[in-house]
Design a protein around this nucleic acid. Structure first.
Length: 579
DNA sequence: GCCGTTTTCGGCCCGACTGTTTTCAGTCG
């Protein structure tokens, strides 16, 4: 039975939870948390590495964890884990999700009161049985009950970055207006460009912490104030998002931004490096053994003092960036300015909201040199997909738009493509001679995503082998927080895409972000080209490219790999040379 | 549990806030 990296990661995270409740030493539980994160971020299937006998090369794998992974992959089960699950009931683990409850209190509540589920916890709280336990009084009891309530209301744990960034930008403007404030930025996972955000972190450099704290806590749309200190406050917004603010002295800006940007795994490594240099690192800077303080007003200065190049936030996950920063071998990550065009968008010819000319104007406004119109093909009836006749009619309109733009003296080209359906039996929804007339062809799976691995993989491979198909669009088909993508054999798919030189899309729609960062990194490792495109359905949608860029940067992607950084002539020559 | 240009044993990042406490444990990030 095959276990995915994500499934293995979830098991080790669950083991860490249950061991913590049992009171196991923190260093042991930390090891399980570390391996959980490392497995989740691993660009290749653990199973492949295991088969090659190279499990020990995975960071965080020692003898004990090696044997556990081995047992899981051999038998699909883990004796140790089964025992642990019997010892600590699932309902007890659930209680960890309540804000304000950690392993110590959960263990106390469980062992003293026999509470074994969230509903029993709620009943115990309402009956006043929680107060009186060690270190717990009336306030703690009320906090736990409030935590249960908020857990019931909250839809999901993490929100899409696309839903958080607009809130962050607006809130940043508000906070910047507080008296005494010199700088405000968001840090945390949003700054690192993650696809989902657990909570939003702000850092404010100010000479008047009380003023910005007070302003922060008096904003509208706040449901609950979770904490209110002199330099740190936390609130929960009505949409469930938790927002934290730290106020710091302007002189420590660099150290504070480094600290609050994280990730935790990255910070632990950076502090270990400081320790080896007899220095202690916190959010205020470095402290030497003789208590001398060093402050840093930029992150660059802090990293430099520790012997490293500045590390782009997107890379700060302890996935090799520390070593690269020490040896001066960090990648030159792709930026917005590298992109010369957007290769997936829709117009009113299918399910878009704007005509071709309007989409072109949108691309011009962003400084692009070209766009590719990729309306849906005929079998996607719900999206008004194009028949061959309508594809040819659209060509006339695109030619007219190009003539008009040229007449205005603009160096800009609208390319004609299509997002052709890969049908459930693997057939391509438009005939080859039709595809041959187009500038570039993108193929996508929209239906029958639940097919078994072999079947759905064969569909994608069939498209990749088609000499007219240049790009595989949103390869997995997932929708973040809505549905899983298809169960593709990614290694096979990437090898084939590299061989036939079919580019794989990083779809920048914040609901898709597909390929995701781990798949994108692996695809590049295996020699694939990528595109980063928005799938926009109106000109405003073109701005969502920033989310796709974040995925690419987190995947260590450099510009030359991405075909829409190429000049138009190179792009068209590549498309014409079918492999 | 993992890990190693000070270690194969003895370490393992660091601080704010809260609530229940007379000095600190628990939680969180």
């Amino acid at each position: 039975m095959a276990l995915s990296n994500q499934q293995l990661a979830a098991i080790f995270s669950d083991i860490a939870d249950r061991l913590e409740i049992q009171g196991e030493v923190v260093f042991k539980t930390r090891s399980y948390r570390v391996i959980s994160e490392n497995l989740a971020a691993l660009p290749r299937p653990v199973e492949d590495i295991w088969r090659e006998g190279k499990l020990n090369e995975v960071p965080g794998v020692g003898k004990a964890i090696h044997d556990k992974i081995d047992e899981l992959l051999r038998t699909g089960k883990l004796e140790f884990y089964e025992r642990l699950r019997a010892e600590v009931p699932d309902g007890v683990v659930d209680m960890l999700r309540v804000s304000g409850l950690g392993p110590k209190r959960v263990k106390e509540i469980w062992s003293t009161l026999g509470v074994m589920s969230l509903s029993e916890l709620e009943a115990a709280g309402k009956a006043g049985r929680l107060r009186g336990l060690p270190k717990m009084g009336e306030k703690t009891e009320l906090k736990i009950l409030a935590g249960i309530e908020s857990l019931k209301r909250r839809a999901t744990g993490r929100m899409r970055a696309g839903d958080v960034l607009p809130i962050a930008l607006q809130m940043r403007e508000v906070l910047r207006a507080a008296p005494g404030v010199l700088r405000v930025e968001y840090a945390g996972s949003l700054r690192r460009g993650r696809e989902t955000i657990g909570d939003l972190d702000f850092v404010a450099a100010t000479t008047d912490p009380a003023a910005v704290m007070s302003l922060f806590r008096s904003q509208p749309h706040i449901e609950e104030i979770l904490g209110a200190g002199e330099t740190k406050s936390s609130v929960r917004l009505q949409n469930g998002l938790q927002v934290d603010l730290r106020a710091i002295d302007p002189s420590v800006w660099g150290a504070a931004m480094q600290y609050f940007t994280g990730s935790q795994a990255h910070n632990i490594r950076v502090r270990e490096i400081a320790q080896k240099q007899k220095l202690s690192l916190n959010e205020y800077g470095l402290t030497a053994e003789d208590s001398t303080k060093l402050t840093f007003d930029t992150e660059e200065a802090l990293y430099a003092r520790l012997g490293m190049a500045w590390i782009p936030p997107e890379l700060r996950e302890d996935r090799g960036e520390i070593e690269a920063a020490q040896s001066g071998s960090l990648p030159r990550l792709i930026t917005r300015a590298d992109l010369r065009g957007d290769l997936q968008m829709h117009s009113t010819w299918s399910d878009g909201a704007a005509d071709v000319l309007t989409m072109a104007r949108g691309g011009i406004a962003l400084g692009y040199e070209y766009i590719l119109i990729t309306d849906h093909s005929q079998s996607l009836g719900i999206a008004n997909g194009l028949t061959p006749e309508r594809v040819r009619a659209q060509r006339k309109e695109i030619d007219a738009v190009n003539r008009q733009l040229a007449g205005e003296g603009l160096v800009f080209r609208v390319l004609q493509g299509v997002e052709v359906e890969i049908k459930s039996d693997g057939a391509i929804d438009l005939p080859d001679d039709m595809l041959a007339e187009l500038d570039l062809v993108q193929a996508s799976v929209h239906t029958s995503l639940a097919q078994p691995r072999e079947r759905i993989t064969e569909r994608a491979l069939n498209a990749i082998r088609n000499p007219h198909i240049d790009i595989l669009g949103h390869p997995s088909g997932r929708l973040i927080n809505e549905r899983e993508g298809g169960d593709f054999d990614w290694e096979a798919l990437f090898h084939a895409a590299a061989e036939h030189d079919v580019a794989l899309e990083i779809n920048a729609d914040p609901a898709r972000l597909d390929l995701n960062e781990t798949h994108a990194r692996r695809a590049v490792e295996l020699g694939c080209h990528l595109t980063i495109s928005t799938d926009a359905h109106h000109p405003g949608g073109l701005n969502q490219i920033v989310y796709g860029l974040s995925v690419a940067r987190r995947a260590w992607v450099t510009p030359e790999t991405v075909i829409n950084t190429w000049p138009l002539d190179k792009l068209l020559a590549w498309a014409a040379s079918e492999v």
